Amino acid sequence: MSTSNAQAFPLEASEHITIPRPADWTRQDTEGTDMVLLSPPVRAGVFRPNVVVTSQPYEGSIAKLSTFAMAAALGELTSLHLIACNIWPHPAGDGRQIEYTHQMGNQILHVQRWTFAVDGKAVDVTATCSSTQLTAIDGLFGYLAANIEFLKAA
Rank of each mutant, 00 (worst) to 15 (best):
M70L: 11
C85F: 03
F116V: 00
L77D: 12
S66F: 00
S79N: 09
K64S: 15
L109S: 15
T67D: 10
L134I: 14
G105P: 08
V111L: 07
G139F: 02
H81C: 12
P91Q: 08
L109D: 08
E76V: 01
L82W: 04
Q97A: 06
A136R: 11
P91I: 06
A73L: 09
L77K: 14
T135C: 04
I98M: 06
L80D: 11
T67I: 05
H81R: 11
A122F: 01
S66H: 01
N106F: 10
N86V: 09
V125I: 09
Y143G: 10
H81V: 12
G105E: 07
L82Q: 13
R113P: 00
L80T: 13
G142R: 14
W114S: 03
M70A: 07
H81N: 11
K64V: 14
R113N: 04
I108W: 05
L109H: 14
I108R: 08
L77M: 14
G95P: 01
L77Y: 07
Q112T: 08
A117D: 01
H102L: 07
W114C: 01
Q97N: 12
T78I: 09
G120L: 05
V111W: 01
K121Y: 08
R96C: 01
G139W: 02
G95W: 01
H90Y: 08
A63L: 13
G93S: 00
D94R: 00
A73K: 01
F116G: 01
I62T: 13
A63G: 04
I83H: 09
S79W: 12
H90P: 04
V123A: 03
Y100S: 03
K64Q: 15
A84F: 06
V125M: 05
Y100F: 01
Q133C: 08
G105A: 07
W88T: 01
T115S: 12
T115M: 05
M70Q: 13
N106E: 15
L77I: 12
N86R: 14
T135A: 13
S66Q: 07
A92Q: 05
A71P: 07
H81K: 14
Q133W: 10
S66P: 11
P89V: 04
F116R: 00
E76G: 08
M70D: 12
A63T: 09
Y100L: 03
T132K: 02
A71E: 15
G95A: 03
K64P: 04
G120V: 02
I62S: 10
I137M: 09
G75W: 05
V123C: 02
D119Y: 02
A72D: 11
